[in-house]
Design a binder for these strands. Sequence first.
DNA 1: GGCTGCGCACATT
DNA 2: AATGTGCGCAGCC
Length: 421
Amino acid sequence: MSESKYREWILDTIDSLRSRKARPDLERICRMVRRRHGSEPDRTCAELEKLIQEQTVLKVNYKGSISYRNAAKVQRRSRKKYDVTLTMAARRSAVEEASHSDLSNGDSALGPVDQDEEDLEADTSVAMDTDSNADEEGADESRDGQDRPSPGRTFEDAPVRCASVRAVSAPCSPSGTRPGPGPGCSPGSGLDCVSLQRAAERPSSLPPSSPRALTHNDWAYDSAVCPVERQNPGMQRDKAAATKPTVHSVTTSPCALKNNVKKEVGDKLEDSSLSSDQLVPDYGARLEETKNISDGRTQALPLPSDNCTFKKKIDMSSFTEAEDGMLNGGKGDEVSMKKENMSQNLLQWTVADVASYFSAAGFPEQAVAFRTQEIDGKSLLLMQRSDVLTGLSIRLGPALKIYERHIKVLQRTHFLEYEDL
DNA sequence: GGCTGCGCACATT
DNA sequence: AATGTGCGCAGCC
């Protein structure tokens, strides 16, 4: 009952705070939701996390503190940095895969990683895994345990008790941007998780002490995405590459799943050169980046599990090739194999996967409609143009793009595969 | 005391 | 240079 309701409330709250020029942080969000709707902060926290995971809300580290953004709005603006979405998607799907239930997972909401895509080239794995640290929960613990000299954060009294979240909000970092700990910030909180994370993230890029390294628009958190990967970036990568050909049980591996899809989408995106405004910011960036990385062949597509994808650029390249082959006439068993995987995956996509996919593809608002209509992979395969244009109550423009560039392609790929098989 | 509006400086692209 | 963000303060209830 409450999920959609909460979504609305929270998004509303975020918008409202933003329009009021107040930072949409956890505390304020919880407070406002409680005031307006009487919802318990705890619950709000939980719901917020879910929204973060489904990318409806983006969690960002801006100017040294955590803020939450309405993904639907953010999306249009900033270009790259918002990998968040992708990341989130990845993570979300990962979680989802595990739990198999829609929004049920409650793990920490991590947000976006700012990961400069540029870094990717140089130290992808490093960046990725570094930030893997802690997640909120981890961070949380650390801060509670280690440095929390003065619990004097704004939060303290805050109604919010959501531990994980609190951690997040807590980090009001004097990371440098702000000359001094603001009124609300407890001076002592020195190293907030965010800062730490960031610092760790780019060991070589920027000195930890550098404000730039710690603050700014960093989509900091998220390391949680693709936990596996994060934990063993190197391994993951290798594994992924190695495993990939064999991917069958892929379904269980979010990363794998996403990869397949991703690749698909990526192609699409590229082909149709989606308008940047529709793309999730990083999409464009990523595409470019990816391209550069490996002479035009690789294409990390902004799919739900971006992180995973990222690391698997290599795979991707082969994938791409495969796909190309497939779309253009077929290339070999490898191709069909891949296709197969993808299709199978598609059949097993949950409602959440579908929503996640579209969110990552740059249609967060519309993704909600898919979720609302409970469109899972199978339903997706059955969707017709009219269903998309009129059955979801979404705007025509995005609907057309979604149908033509994504659904149609997914369906075609799926059925082609079947033919082959 | 809490909420809201908003100028303005800062951050980011 | 343009635009987004949010601190800090004043006004309102």
